[in-house]
Design a protein around this nucleic acid. Structure first.
Length: 270
DNA sequence: CTGAGATCCTGGGGGC
DNA sequence: TGCCCCCAGGATCTCA
């Protein structure tokens, strides 16, 4: 499931690969996968646009275009943005393709069709509801302390809430809570200050290390170049039901919290 | 504001 | 072996 590290990896790959390219044409084979403002045809709206840069916001890949508009892609769980050369066969499960003038193309594929590609106007506040970037300087200890203050929400649910912090998904929520030795179900306001500071550090640490390793390929995630990530090999708890906790040796358990599978150590996460 | 539940999909895992 | 059932998972919406 692409979360911040995976989306960052995809965006970096695309930044190298498609920045400066001009879109010659767009083909869409599943209309619901794409959206354009004001009911304008998505394909027509993109024709002739040039890609200025590619970045990330939360779990969204953002391609900034010459007109000032942005093409915002949500990969959800199984979405992929795959770069292909001229003559490469169509990628299986492709629903939209951006054809560039140099013959390369970017395929948007998603077997579960949950992903979305959306064209937004220059002044459109498409990310207004997204929370703070956890790796940005603005995500200070004080900001995090304030965020948890007075909230009864389980800390894991808070970490997953994109309105508060943008980019953390199930894998890194589980991993950060394990690293900080915090029980996922604890009410946010019940965390001690030392625990909050441990978690603040753990969030940034796990996201940074995972990004350095090009993300986690737990299922079939691959980046824009088709490469798998490496962080799945160093996960401590996610998906590790019954395996020994790397810290204390107790078996990892799986519970359900905020409708999500939650892996953690009953022994050393308090 | 907050949380719960439904919804969207399908590959793949579990059960028999 | 083969078949059926069921479910994970992120964002969004509705409802209490």
């Amino acid at each position: 499931m692409p979360e911040l590290p995976e989306v960052e990896t995809v965006a970096r790959g695309l930044a190298r690969a498609v920045a400066g390219k001009t879109i010659e044409s767009v083909t869409v084979s599943l209309a619901k996968m794409v959206q354009a403002p004001g009911g304008v045809a998505f394909a027509a709206a993109l024709r002739g646009e040039r890609v200025e840069s590619v970045g990330r916001r939360g779990k969204y890949v953002v391609m900034r275009l010459r007109s000032g508009r942005s093409l915002v892609t949500s990969l959800r769980m199984t979405g992929r943005l795959v770069l292909q050369r001229e003559g490469d066969p169509d990628f299986p499960g492709t629903h939209a393709v951006l054809h560039y003038t140099d013959g390369t193309r970017l395929s948007f594929a998603d077997v579960r069709t949950f992903g979305r590609m959306r064209l937004v106007e220059p002044d459109e506040p498409w990310d207004a509801a997204l929370g703070i970037e956890p790796l940005s300087p603005g995500f200070t200890q004080q900001v995090f302390i304030g965020m948890l203050s007075g909230r009864t929400t389980p800390i894991k649910a808070l970490l997953l809430d994109q309105h508060r912090i943008a980019g953390i998904g199930n894998i890194y929520a589980c991993e950060a809570l394990w690293a900080a030795r915090i029980r996922p179900g604890r009410p946010s306001k019940a965390l001690t200050k030392p625990a909050i500071l441990r978690l603040h550090h753990a969030i940034r640490d796990v996201l940074t290390r995972a990004t350095e390793m090009r993300g986690s390929s737990v299922d079939d995630y691959v980046d824009a170049d088709g490469l798998r990530g490496g962080f799945q090999n160093v996960l401590s708890v996610y998906g590790k039901l019954g395996e020994p906790c790397p810290r204390c040796g107790a078996p990892i358990v799986r519970t359900v919290l905020a409708q999500r599978g939650t892996w953690w150590c009953r022994s050393c996460q308090r």
